[in-house]
């Protein structure tokens, strides 16, 4: 092998190496990182969501039984990569399982003397305070929880998280109770939900 030739670096060469090197480095690192992180930037810093901020009908308050939760499935529109609002993109949806129960499983008195036709503002207020609209994803690691009627509890199959009918944490490793959806009850008794959670961020829902 030939001897390595070690020429001195001139001042001009040093400056060119420094500036051009920095520019090339910046072009090759900043856009790729921003490209990869764009969902993170949009979600965490700009507060954008993949699911439009709309109400979706779940069911009626008159269907929710006493002593046991009712499971609904609701389909939210979802805009993500090739599915979006742009007419040139496809339409995507995300399906959620929503658990609805009355506080402590007791049908509130406001519902007993309410008619299917219309609820008054005060009735709606009372029902709203008595209704639990919960995600069925365990607050620990997101596994689907299920209702065991003989135990009157929700159990998570993954690590044994236990919740009561209100979604409150009874035992196991979860850090908190089940996640509650933002919901509203309308005059006809319809329950409407948003893809938004009032106590923490469940992420994979």
């Amino acid at each position: 092998m030939a001897e390595l030739q070690k020429d001195p670096v001139t001042r001009a060469q040093f400056i060119v190496m420094g500036t051009v090197g920095t520019l090339v480095g910046a072009v090759l690192t900043i856009p790729p990182v921003a490209f990869m992180l764009s969902p993170t930037i949009k979600t965490n810093f700009l507060g954008q969501s993949d699911v439009p901020d709309d109400w979706h009908e779940l069911g009626s308050v008159f269907e929710v039984p006493s002593g046991t939760p009712k499971l609904y499935r609701v389909e939210f529109p979802q805009n993500q990569t090739y599915n979006g609002e742009d007419p040139l993109l496809g339409k995507g949806t995300i399906m959620n399982a929503v658990l609805v129960s009355w506080m402590d499983g007791e049908i509130p008195s406001a519902l007993e003397n309410a008619s299917q036709g219309g609820l008054s503002a005060s009735q709606i207020e009372e029902l709203t305070s008595q209704l639990n609209v919960m995600s069925n994803h365990c607050a620990h690691l997101g596994c689907p929880v299920r209702w065991f009627p003989d135990r009157d509890e929700f159990l998570c199959p993954c690590h044994g998280g236990i919740y009561d009918i209100n979604g409150g944490l009874i035992g196991g490793p979860p850090p908190q109770g089940l996640y509650y959806y933002a919901f509203e009850i309308r005059e006809d008794g319809g329950i409407y939900v948003k893809h938004e959670f009032t106590n923490g961020e469940p992420w994979v829902v």
């Binding site: 499971l71 959620n96 069925n136 596994c143 689907p144 299920r146 199959p157």
Partner: peptide, 10 residues
């Protein structure tokens, strides 16, 4: 995959 399953045991 079904995100809204209530029976699957992961």
């Amino acid at each position: 995959m079904d995100l809204s399953t209530d029976t699957y045991v992961p």
